[in-house]
Each structure stands twice: as structure tokens, then as C-alpha cells.
Write a protein that binds this DNA or RNA. Structure first.
Lengths: 354, 354
DNA sequence: CTGAAAGCGCTTACAG
DNA sequence: CTGAAAGCGCTTACAG
């Protein structure tokens, strides 16, 4: 037992176990070449003293900081939070800690913030979510500092870093095909941010499905949103005021789909009897609006975990040199969630009267 | 200009500026007793080299780590994320970084996780949100390690640490009085977690307002929820099946209030014409449900900022010894948000027919 | 399989 | 107002 008031150090553990500092270090780092007897003796001493290795000392002396960074863009967002919790999970399991930083993509100090994070903390790796995944200044600073990073659902598909994503294009296609299969022909679409990968890909999937089905796309029924509920409100009003009105609307995310339902409710347009609506993400809001949203569920936690694992594997390797080749590009499965916001077209008032 | 590939260190800056390491250190830490001329010369050299002080070196050598921790409980949650972004803001402004950790209150390794966070990283301070604010193991570890912490909306009102909150009891009272003022007498209430401060206080406020108004509380109209949308669903069904049904329902948060609206919609009970509903928090869902929710807005960002500032002020002080006395207990203003989910009682079908 | 020495980049405590 | 020395708690690189 240590009597002083300071925290026990590696020296204290070494003394108690009757070995050198270096042996304790080997045990802590799970390095090979330690006899089982010594390993056991050291572990016991560490536990007995409540020894916790100092991250700053390890970071200063060694080649690892045991710190992973998470850089996100949006100030709000359930998506971001879910990614974070999943990252936390993997980091903890690997003995790493998670630093977070928010980057306002439009701010002028983007490079400075990124630099402060990686240079002051010597991060072993960084996880990026859209739209920061494609911010030139951020990527330049990370590349310059040689900090490994993994991008979740980036816009550009280049091979400069590993990425984790779902096939947004195909998911949007399936969603659209679901509506076409219900007999809808006159479909509206609400786009997301154009510089956001998901926004672009989801629109492409919609267009592909429509073309394959020979269904015309009325440009008046395509509105430019920005993923926010408010932008969905504006777009929904525009689409629903158009004549003839669409019988179904595909929104690029659930927030905007929920906005469509809100506008429909306010105008006594019955969903899904008179108007089918689909969203994307399976955000909490999808099950909370009435009727609940048919949408696409992304495996957010799995995506984040894989991102973390890629980084942790590289940080843990003794050389830590480079990414495996070919560059990892993980594509996870999504899931179509059929709920209550979609119904056959032209069922009209018969069903509405149920 | 440094030619090597490593990052510039304090020594490089000192050489370039023609001063000692110690002088550079003084400038970086904004310590007094440096002539203006030298201060300027050092600043320029640092900028020229792109010098970033190593957090681990500073942490190891000095008495500060420049790291603040954020401990939260719930795996999801807009509230948590908003707190985090606000903390990030203040930390960055002060040259600090933010570490996050999630604690599952029911898990067995709560103490270990907390210990790992504070002992390995030597955190300069920790911010806690409910319900972790009142977790015995967490507090014991923090106290034992002498890590200063600030609690946001804790349950217990003891003076062991600073706290930041709104007056939940008074807010719930005002919300209830708003309904009573609209002529409602038969009110239902959906409680939150009993061991969660806000849950208890909001119920007390409700009871107080009812008693003062001489309105009886029907125990059959008080349901025990747990802040989740799902629990709100169950409670709402129970309350609305009761006869005579309530004309208004107070839910302890917006998620549960939204659930009440969902159940009402599903049963063709018109809100607010036949049933008034109020929530608490002004979460995003409040403006997204139809009709939008009358609720109480908490100044979440301000609360988090004040929590961070308390910690940063103490970490920055040279002695860093203790909290100011009396222990800070900051109570911020809330705001009643009157929206579309409340209307006069007994307006009945006249209004419903509009 | 084990260990003694040097050093990571800073700050502290002390001199002047 | 300025600086030289020692040391924070580890890991690296090297011996044995």
C-alpha cells in the first residue's frame, strides 16, 4: 500500500512486484516475452495499488496517445450522438479515450481548430462524419499531420482514406420502387444538401428507379431542401400546392418527411390514404409522427464501430505504418422499414373512410 | 523554419526567438513578468513555426491537464448532445479539450469507468448531467480523486459541488396554472423517472398548483412513465381509457407528451379541442408533432456554458484550491412556450368543427 | 526472458 | 524581468 497522497506510478508497482519498471510496462502493454509468473505478480501489484497508467506520460514517451478524436459538423443531431456513443464503446474496450470537436463547416477557423486538436493532443486517429468528411481544410490538416482518419459516408469516393457507408443510391432506389409497386406514378422528391453525399446519392437512386419504371419526373415536383424539418415544411408546401399534386413524396431524410406529414395534416390531406410519404434514416422522429414513417434504417452504431476498429487496429500495430491495401471501403446493409405512411395509390376515399 | 519532420517544440521557439524555454512557457501561459518586447518576439516565433504546445507534456509536468470531461448517462438524447456542443464551445475558447464518457447507470463497471477516465487522464474537471449527477459510485470516485465537478440539474440538493439548474418545480406549476386558467379541472399527469430530479420536482409543481386551485387530483389519472416515448404511449392509453377522461394531460417531458398526442390521434381524439397536452423541455419533437406542443424551454446551452465556466475558472486559478463559498448554485430562467396543443376546456365540439 | 539508461516536451521551484 | 536545473511517468533503443 502506498501511503502518500499521490497516485501510484509505475515505479510503485515495480517495487511492490519486485521487478523493473520495464517489466511492468511490458505487462501493461500486453507485450510478449514476460514469464507467466512475473506477469501475474505484476498484475496483482497493479490491482492492489489501484494503479492507472498516466495517458500523458505514455503519450509523451511513446508513439501512441491512446486518444481518438471525433469531428462532427452539425450542432444538433441524433445521428451524431449515436455515432459518438458507438465510438465510445469501442474506444473504451481498447483502452482508448475519445476527444470530441465540433466544426462549423462555414467558419473561418476550421483549419485552426483541426490543427489544435491533432497537434496539441497527438491523436492516434480521427473519425469524421458528413459533411466534415469532405472539408478540404480539415483533410489537409489531417494529411499534413499524418493523422489516420476514417470517414463515415463521405461525399467524394476517393481512396485517400478508409470509409464506411451504406449504399444510399440503392436504398433510395428500393424505397422508390416500393412506392412504384404500390401503383404510384406521380412522385415528388425533396432533396437534401447538394454537397452532402447522402443527398446526392439518394436523389440518383430515385431518378434511376423512376427511369427504369418509365415513370416521368416532373421537375416541378422536385424541391431542394437541406435536411432540416423547416426546409421540409417549405418544400412540402410547394409540392402539395402544385396541380396535379403528387400521390407520393420521397424525402431525403426523416425530418423532412415528418415535415411533409405535418403539412399534410394541417391541410387535411390524409396520409397515407391520399398521400404516401417515405423518409430516410429511421431517426427517432420516424416512429413518433403519425402515421409512422416508412423509411430506411442505417446501421449507425455498426458503422461507427467499424470506423473505430479500423483506427484502433492501426494504432495498435507496432509499425502503425499504413492502411491495408486496397483501401478499406466498408459497405453495410441497410433495412427497409415499412410502416404506416405508405399505401396503394388511388385507393382514394374508399380507404380514407375506414 | 524548422526543417525536420517532427513538430516544433518549445525549444525550437526559444531558439528562434533567442530566449530561454522558460520565457516561451511564460508567454504561452500568459503569465506576467515578461517584457512586452519579448512577448511579441516569442509570439511571432511561435506563429512562424506553427508551434502547438503538447498537451501531454504540459499535463505531465504541470498541475493542469487542459482536459475537461463530460459524463452522461443516456445512450441517446438531444439534450445530451446540446450540452456537449455548448461545453465544447467554452472549452475551446479557454484552450481546453473535451473528453466524453458514457456511463450506463445500471452497469457494474461504473466506478471503474469513472476511475479510468479521471486517473488516466488527470482531468481538470468534470461536468455531469442527470441521472449520473447522483450516482454514488461516480461521485465517490470523483471525490476520492479530488477532481472538481459541476452537476447540471442534480437530484440531491446537497452543497458538495456547484450545480446549475432551472426551477423545475416552479415551471411545472406555471404550466399547470396555464391549463387551470384555461378552465381545465380534470388533469392527468405522466411522471418521469422517480430517481431523476426533474421527474420528482415537476410532479411536485403540478401537485402544488392543483392544491392551490382547489382542483382534486384523481390518482387514477397519475401514471408512472420513464421519460421515453414508449412509456408515454402506455401511460397515455391508460389515462385516456379512464372514465371520465381527463380534459388535459401534463407530461413530464416532450417525448411523453408527443406520445399522448400520438395516442389521441390514433383514437380520433382531437388535440387541443378535446384534449389539451403540455410537455417539458422544448425538445425538437415539440415543434414537429401536430399540433405543436406547449412546453417549457430550458436554456440548455447556457446551463452547460456556466457549468464549464465554473470548472475553467477554477482550473485557471493558480492555487486552484477550492470552490468559492457559498457553493455556487445557479438557477437560470426558463421560458413557457405556448403553442397549439392547449386550448380552453369544454370548448368541445364547437371548436372541433372549425 | 529481464533490466539500466536516456529522453519525450513541458513546468516547477529556485536563483539572480 | 529572465534563465539553468531537475523532474513529471512513462517508452524507446539497447544490452545481457
Amino acid at each position: 500500500m502506498k501511503s502518500g497522497d499521490g497516485k501510484p506510478t509505475i515505479t510503485d508497482v515495480a517495487k511492490l512486484a519486485g521487478v523493473s519498471m520495464k517489466t511492468v510496462s511490458r505487462v501493461i502493454n500486453k507485450e510478449p516475452n514476460v514469464s507467466e509468473a512475473l506477469r501475474e505478480r505484476v498484475s496483482q501489484a497493479a490491482t492492489q495499488l489501484g494503479y492507472q497508467p498516466s495517458v500523458s506520460a505514455r503519450s509523451l514517451a511513446g508513439m501512441r496517445s491512446f486518444l481518438i478524436g471525433f469531428l462532427f459538423g452539425d450542432p444538433g443531431g441524433d445521428y451524431t450522438h449515436r455515432v459518438e456513443v458507438a465510438l465510445l464503446d469501442r474506444c473504451r474496450a481498447a483502452g482508448y479515450h475519445l476527444m470530441v470537436e465540433q466544426i462549423d463547416a462555414a467558419a473561418s477557423d476550421v483549419a485552426a481548430r483541426t490543427a489544435a486538436l491533432v497537434a496539441q493532443l497527438r491523436l492516434d486517429g480521427v473519425v469524421l462524419t458528413a459533411p466534415i468528411t469532405d472539408h478540404r481544410d480539415v483533410l489537409r490538416v489531417l494529411d499534413g499531420a499524418r493523422v489516420p482518419y476514417v470517414r463515415i459516408a463521405p461525399n467524394s469516393d476517393d481512396a485517400s482514406s478508409p470509409q464506411v457507408r451504406i449504399d444510399d443510391r440503392r436504398a433510395a432506389r428500393e424505397l422508390t420502387e416500393h412506392l412504384l409497386g404500390l401503383g404510384h406514378r406521380r412522385l415528388g422528391f425533396i432533396k437534401g444538401d447538394p454537397w452532402h453525399a447522402a443527398g446526392r446519392l439518394r436523389y440518383e437512386g430515385f431518378v434511376g428507379a423512376m427511369q427504369d419504371a418509365g415513370a416521368p419526373i416532373d421537375p416541378a415536383l422536385v424541391a431542394q431542401g437541406s435536411f432540416s424539418f423547416e426546409s421540409g415544411l417549405l418544400c412540402a408546401r410547394r409540392l402539395l400546392e402544385h396541380s396535379p399534386a403528387p400521390t407520393a413524396i420521397v424525402a431525403s431524410n426523416d425530418d423532412m418527411a415528418a415535415a411533409v406529414i405535418a403539412v399534410a395534416n394541417a391541410r387535411a390531406i390524409r396520409v397515407p390514404e391520399q398521400l404516401s410519404v417515405v423518409g430516410f434514416d429511421d431517426a427517432p422522429i420516424a416512429q413518433v409522427v403519425w402515421p409512422s414513417l416508412t423509411t430506411v434504417r442505417q446501421p449507425i452504431a455498426s458503422m461507427a464501430q467499424m470506423a473505430a476498429d479500423l483506427l484502433l487496429a492501426r494504432a495498435g500495430s507496432r509499425n502503425g505504418a499504413a492502411w491495408p491495401q486496397p483501401m478499406p471501403r466498408l459497405e453495410l446493409d441497410y433495412e427497409l422499414k415499412l410502416r404506416h405512411s405508405t399505401a396503394p395509390a388511388a385507393l382514394g376515399l374508399a380507404m380514407a373512410a375506414r
